[in-house]
Write a protein that binds this DNA or RNA. Structure first.
Lengths: 254, 254
DNA sequence: GTCAGATGAGAGCAGTGCTCTCTATTGGGA
DNA sequence: TCCCAATAGAGAGCACTGCTCTCATCTGAC
């Protein structure tokens, strides 16, 4: 084994965080700085952000930037992962802030408003992760895990609602509502498992529909489809959230 | 008035369609051809389609293309308007195909499935009009009218549902559901007017929520958020449509 | 102190949107 | 029928892009 390789292994296996070399720390700071500037450009240029412009802002030449990110896609991926994680933290914080854990309606509202608030504050970052696919960009599997985090919070709320006896009885939608085909039901049960909600498929299906509506509403607002139509944005969103909560059954007395 | 201007006015005021000159017809054909090729490129390159590549495909040089479209944005606008109009025609046709006009549930399902089918068949055109805003592109007011057409169909269904006595009684959501603030209620009543549905605000609000959910669902599918989650796409969409129909009150017996 | 590896600068390639100038064609009015 | 202006296209050029390659500098571990 070459000395260089040995040194690499030592650095990465035996001193992971404890003693990062000065070079490594500078490199990490530089990487963060690049992402910060890129994020600023994202707000003006959207996904058509220019590596060269970012480099100029940093007082360096574009080729130097390639020491930190192999290409534009890799930089985008870093921004996407960060965006997912920031959103996830907002959502988890909002959920955790509701001290009465049995107040599942309050938790649903808190989570929904947290998502909307973040999206409205950072529309370009929202578009980056929930908008139309970026031309020529294929998201790597690295993005899957952070993308799952927000929906796990919903799963937690659902599970707590079930154990609090708030959700409607199993399969109540079967009378009156539409039944789920067995293939679809199996898929939704898989979702329930992944999300950690030990809840019947019909309840999960209703929650997924509400989740879809939530992001539909946020998308409509952020992407400008409410322009010149509805100005009372927050109130309209709140009304939708409460309606969907009733649809899921979160509003019921326990 | 110069002779040239006079001739222009004559062409545009006194013989609008009747006798288009050969030159005008060739020009119109060429314009359509450019849009056709551009649409093909849209499917591969997304909104980052290249004018030069389009010109190459047409066997001409890029500058020649500027005789037909002032710039890239104008070409995009033309594609956007076309996409809206094609979708609108699909939706209107689907609605009109339901012979029993009192079958408002059937009409809602037909419209929903028509929108989804078009979006799944032409994901890039769907992204063009319902996806995240295109970097550096501002939609001109020309796009407003065609963008309104699909929602007018929903308005028609709502109005017919009301006159058939299918919708729930006025303001039934006030008990149990959340009330609408008066500013928001006024905005929604304006929507009702524009859409031509002489229906109370609560019913329109529920319909708007269902509309939001519909596009949320289509967006989730087209933009890949259902990948590795739900394979029974059409059935899942149908279940959502039916659930939202019940939410609006379209399922009620008249 | 040395020397490999990390970092950045600079030139260059192929591509982009768009403008400008020049030429060939064509069609309507005298 | 001829003429002249309007039209359509070609080609060169500008400023920009992502990305690669080479070269010089610096630094940190031995």
């Amino acid at each position: 084994m070459s000395r260089a390789l040995l040194s690499f292994v030592c650095d990465n296996l035996f001193m992971p965080d404890s003693a990062p070399s000065l070079r490594a720390r500078v490199r990490a700071e530089m990487t963060e700085e690049i992402k910060r500037v890129a994020l600023r450009h994202l707000a003006t240029d959207g996904t058509a952000l220019s590596l060269r412009a970012v480099a100029r802002d940093l007082g360096m030449v574009s080729s130097a930037l390639y020491r930190y990110f192999a290409n534009r896609d890799e930089l985008l991926t870093a921004l996407i992962v960060d965006a997912y994680n920031v959103l996830a933290e907002e959502v988890e914080r909002a959920d955790a802030a509701v001290t009465d854990r049995a107040d599942v309606l309050g938790r649903w509202l808190a989570v929904g408003h947290a998502i909307r608030a973040w999206a409205v504050a950072k529309p370009h970052e929202y578009a980056l992760i929930y908008g139309s696919p970026i031309p020529g960009y294929a998201a790597p599997t690295t993005t899957i895990e952070p993308a799952t985090r927000p929906v796990l919070v919903l799963g937690g709320i659902l599970a707590d609602a079930r154990s609090a006896g708030v959700l409607p009885e199993k399969d109540v939608t079967l009378e009156g509502g539409s039944p789920l085909g067995h293939k679809l039901r199996a898929e939704i049960e898989t979702v329930a498992e992944v999300v950690g909600a030990e809840v019947d498929a019909a309840a999960v299906a209703r929650a997924l529909l509400a989740w879809t509506e939530l992001f539909g509403a946020v998308g409509f607002e952020v992407f400008g489809r409410l322009n010149n139509v509805i100005a009372q944005r927050e109130e309209w969103f709140d009304w939708q959230l409460r309606s969907m909560a009733r649809f899921i059954g979160l509003g019921n007395r326990s």
